[in-house]
Structure formats: structure tokens, C-alpha cells
Design a protein around this nucleic acid. Structure first.
Lengths: 342, 342
DNA sequence: GTGAAAGCGCTAACAC
DNA sequence: GTGTTAGCGCTTTCAC
């Protein structure tokens, strides 16, 4: 035991207030003060009172690093997104952050990039913090990475997809079904020459392929798909339509892999004097907040992005607090929001 | 010292690989293994080699919680934004995350809300992690909060503004100058009846007031300002223009507090048959990536949002690594990007 | 260049 | 209900 004075070598503390100080002021043992703060039901009302006062007087803020080390519960949750500027995942990240904060957890944000280049370094940084869970939005590229997460014993929630082989927990929807539904929708509306503008993203591609395949099944002509790099932008939408029209001038409906692309397609169409929806139907994906208020209003695929984030938070908190997670896969579904653009 | 077998009561470790295991495998003391990993220059090549092999063989990932506790350097940086879905700060957060990750720091994200309601709880959660720095984007509302940060001794970078009384470090620009410049710009272009649509956000309001005041100085008629709630959306822009036209039907130029509002104003104008820019000039703020590709292309105020994030990261890393920060305030400036909408 | 000891601030495990 | 003790996994301090 280190005595507080006269010792030769002792590491100087932060100088900050510690639980020790609070306990001393309250006249109890440190562990009792700890209990008063973390599980108040376990201590007497008198102790609660005295500790509360001591905290207020000292301005004590618990050191969660120390607490996490001792309890092996960091109350940190990591989220990995391709890039935060893709507006699609924003709502999910927002809901996740809020849901976690409400329960005393904090979000750590990591950007993996669309290419998977930085992924290993990112995983290492994340695992090093011993988070109570990891939320993956967008794909984790390497098999190696998946193994490491599993090996580290960290609960993992994959989102925005429905893979047949989830690492652990999953909340998403079927991209194949989305593509199919949109093709069927446009077919029902009498469109015959379909096309797609699609970001270079694995899930977006799956939607487009299903869209293409379904069109074939319905007896429609071959569907050209214009690929554009991710992340998608309005400009890429404009360029995408231009390219599409070169390939297939008779196109009368375009499925875009994001609302931003769709806005670009509509912008380009207007610039060329092509009327939407009369001559060209446009369908987006994401139902971003501007979609409803465009002119014409954008028909698009709505995903409950916030619900994905909340469910992911729930999964991780349940696991962290030792509750059984009965159902490890949640299909959140999707819906086509019919507006004027298609 | 706890022996590994036969002890009565000993807390079970995580079961994970620790530095201790690596050191044993490499045949050195733990501290030597630590040095091999963290300051390789201090150990012999032979030790580096052996430790490296041991790490590879065991799949060791350092526990940064433990490291942070011992070294009082968490390598965590907290960022506080009003809400992540406001696209304005996104690029800053993205650049910040990247710059930090490159240097081995991780970002913790907190959402304060535009109202300041959750702010205290958020600060407590942040301080509890003992981050190496805090980046504030958007205002920190309470004086109380500022004091707590200072008291905790955590380096603070305020961004997106140039306050006369920074808490600590600052990287931003003058909102007053932006408002003035835009008014002067529109005046030069021959616009005479100016108006503004402005989100309910302190900085946005300062821009609008300066815009209004400058117009008065230039001898222009009273400038109506339509206030809309934050965060701003396309819809609010449409509604904003509608309201503005009721107030002042002769308006020939609108300054919007965000590009999204500007897009809404342009959309509403088109829906009403008002030609942009002939009858109505529209100026946005933010220069989001879609601005250049709208039709007409949006004239807007460009802010080097990424540079703000990078500078903030630099500030904090310098401070964390004990380097002097010669200049604690950086004015990143702004520029009006002239396109067709005004 | 390497190591032994101590301890960062907290909580789990075990008494009483 | 409260206290004692022993660590969580790492790095600092000091010594060689």
C-alpha cells in the first residue's frame, strides 16, 4: 500500500477527483461509493445521500476507462460505415447514437472506405478498445476481418442487408426483393424499356441485378445498367442518364441506386427537355428527406433507417447486459413510396 | 503475484491474449514487449523481431483501455455535433475521423441536439472517457458546460465559428462577414429587394442579420427574414419562399442559410413559374456536392469543411503529444462561388 | 538496452 | 448493507 506522503517513488495521479476522494468525503469505503453510483438499490438511503453530496461537492466524474478495464464492460459501441458522407446511413447512425446515449453507451465511429483498404487497421483500433459491440453498416470486406471479430468475442450486428451467413446478429432487408419489386412496379405502370443507374456498391449492384433479371422474366427487353463509382452524387446521376441515353435512347424508366442519383437523373432530364414522368419514370432509393418535396416528387424505396439503428442498439445492449437475444435476425422490410416521378 | 493454478480467489481475466503472454513467448519482460510495440527505437532489432513474431502468432491486440488508464492518454477524441444528419458538418466529421485514424486516434461521436437539452449528460459521458480532446461543431450552449470542460483539463477545439472568447482553440470563419459579402455581392449584381430564409441556428442567424444590416447600409429596402426550424430541409425551403413571397412579393434575391434550403427555394420557384436567376436570384450556403450540378447551378458560399476537420485534428494531436500550439485561432475563411443561380 | 516494482482508478469476489 | 482484498492490462518510475 502506498502511503500518501514521504514515499520515494510513486506515480503522480491525474490530480483529478477519484472515487477514492468521494468515498473519503462521504465517510464510506470506495466500493460502497461505487455501489451508490452504479447500483443504488444495493445501498442504504443514507449512503446514497452522502455519496450524492460528495459527488456534487467535488464535481466527480467517473473514469470510464478504469471502470471498463475492471468490469470488462467498456460501454463503448463501435460503428463502421463506408464513409459518413453517404447520406444513406446517416439516419441509422443518428438513431444508433441516440439509442445508445439514452442507455449510457457511447458511439465510436470508424470509416472503412468503399474499397476496404483501411479495414484492417480500423478493426485493430476498434478491437483494441474492447467495445461492447460493433455495428457494421455496409459490408465488411475481408473474411479475415470477420474471423478476428469473432475471435475477439465482440457482439457484431450487421445492418442494411440480409446475408445468408451472418457473423452474429443482423438487421436488414433483402436487396434482391427491392430490385424485383421495383421492376414489377414499373412494369405494372406500363413501362417497357427499363434502365438503371447504379453506384459501385455490392448491395446496390444486387438490387440492380435483380431488377434486370426480373425485367427479363417479365418479357421486357434487356435492361442496360450504367455503373457509377460510389459514393453517388447528383453529378453522377446526370452523367449516368446521359450515358444511359446513348446506350438505349428509348428508355422510359430508370431505377437509381440512390435518391441523389435520381435527383441527378431528373435534373439532366429537365435540362434535355425530357419530361418526368411522362417520358421518363424515375425511381430512387433511400427516401431521403428531400425526396417528397422535389418537383416532381420522387417515387422511391423507403427503408426504415432509424429503426435499423434502434434495433442494432437494442441487440448490443441486450447482449452486453447479459440478456438472451431470442431472435438474431430481423428483416426490417422496405416499401415503395409512390409519388409523381414514376 | 497471482499464480495461475490452485488459488482460492482470483478474478478471471478476459481469457484474451495479453502483453504478458506476448512477452513470455518472446522471452522478454512485459515492459520490453511494450516498448517494442510503442517505441521500437528503444529496443534492439532482435527484440523487435521476437516480439513481432509473438504478436503475429498469438493475434495479440493491445488493450487500449488499459493503456489509456496507465498512460493517461486515451487516444480518443470526442466530437460534438448538433445532429449528424445536418449535412453541413458531415465533411468536417469525415475529415476529422480520417485525420485522427491516420495518427492512431479514434473518434467518439456525440449529438447535442439543436436545443441543448441533452448537453449535460453528453458532456459527462465524454469527460468520463478522458478523451485527449474535444471538437465542438456547432455551439455548446451552457456556460456551465464550458467550465466543466476547462476544469477537466481537456483540450477543446471549437469549430465553424470565430468567437471573440474561445474556450481554448478555434478554427472557423466569420459568419458576419459571410452575410455582409453576400449582401454586397447581390447588390453588385443589381438586385434591390433582398430577402432571406434562415434556419433557427445561432450562426445562421448571425449571417442573416449581417446580410440584413448590410443591405440597409447599402440603401436597400428592409430585408425580410423568414425563420425556419433547424435542421433545414428542402421542404422548409419551399415553404420559406412561399412565406417570403407573401411578405414581400417583389423580392428579387434570396439568401438561404443552407444549400438544402436553397434547393427548396429553387424548387418552389420553378413550381410557381418564377425563373431563376432572371426573376429571382438564389444564394445558398455550404456548397454541398450537389450545388454545382443543379440546374441552374447554385451560387453559394463555400466553406472548406474538410480543412476545418483536419486542422482540428492537428490541434488536438499536437496538444496530446505535448507540442506547443503556437496559434490557437485559425480563420479558415470562405468564398462565394458564383454560378448561374445568382 | 532491459527489467522490477508500483500503481493508473475502478470493480469482482469474497467476507462479515 | 458494507468492507477488505486483489486484481483488470498496461505504462511509469527508477535502477542496472
Amino acid at each position: 500500500m502506498a502511503d500518501s506522503e514521504g514515499t520515494r517513488r510513486t506515480r503522480r495521479g491525474s490530480g483529478g477527483v477519484t472515487l477514492h476522494d468521494v468515498a473519503k468525503l462521504a465517510g464510506v469505503a470506495p466500493i460502497t461509493a461505487s455501489r451508490a453510483l452504479n447500483s443504488p438499490a444495493q445501498v442504504s438511503a443514507e449512503v446514497r445521500q452522502k455519496v450524492g453530496e460528495a459527488v456534487a461537492r467535488t464535481g466527480y466524474v467517473p473514469n470510464l476507462l478504469a471502470g471498463g478495464l475492471a468490469s470488462r464492460r467498456s460501454r463503448l459501441v463501435a460503428a463502421v460505415v463506408p464513409t459518413i458522407s453517404g447520406p444513406v446511413f446517416l439516419e441509422t447512425v443518428q438513431a444508433l447514437t441516440e439509442s445508445l446515449a439514452e442507455r449510457g453507451y457511447q458511439l465510436m465511429l470508424g470509416q472503412a472506405g468503399y474499397t476496404g483498404s483501411r479495414e484492417d487497421a480500423l478493426l485493430e483500433a476498434i478491437i483494441g478498445r474492447r467495445p461492447d459491440g460493433i455495428v457494421l453498416t455496409g459490408i465488411l470486406h475481408s473474411i479475415e476481418g470477420r474471423k478476428r471479430l469473432l475471435a475477439a468475442g465482440i457482439p457484431v450486428v450487421e445492418t442494411w442487408d440480409l446475408t445468408p451467413t451472418p457473423i452474429d446478429m443482423l438487421v436488414g432487408f433483402s436487396h434482391v426483393e427491392v430490385g424485383r419489386s421495383v421492376a414489377e412496379y414499373l412494369h405494372r405502370k406500363g413501362r417497357r424499356q427499363l434502365g438503371a443507374v447504379c453506384g459501385d456498391d455490392e448491395r446496390a449492384k444486387r438490387r440492380s441485378w435483380a431488377f434486370q433479371a426480373t425485367a427479363a422474366t417479365l418479357g421486357l427487353p434487356e435492361v442496360p445498367i450504367v455503373a457509377v463509382p460510389a459514393p453517388t452524387t447528383l453529378r453522377l446521376g446526370r452523367e449516368g442518364l446521359a450515358t444511359l441515353l446513348e446506350t438505349q435512347p428509348a428508355v422510359d424508366a430508370v431505377f437509381c441506386s440512390s435518391d441523389l442519383l435520381a435527383l441527378g437523373v431528373m435534373t439532366e432530364a429537365r435540362a434535355r427537355g425530357i419530361r418526368v414522368p411522362e417520358q421518363l419514370a424515375v425511381v430512387g432509393f433511400g427516401d431521403l428527406d428531400f425526396a417528397a418535396d422535389l418537383d416532381p416528387a420522387l417515387t422511391t424505396v423507403h427503408i426504415k433507417a432509424g429503426a435499423i439503428g434502434r434495433q442494432a442498439a437494442q441487440f448490443i445492449i441486450d447482449r452486453a447486459e447479459g440478456r438472451a437475444v431470442p431472435q438474431r435476425v430481423v428483416d426490417i422490410g422496405y416499401s415503395i413510396i409512390e409519388r409523381t416521378s414514376a
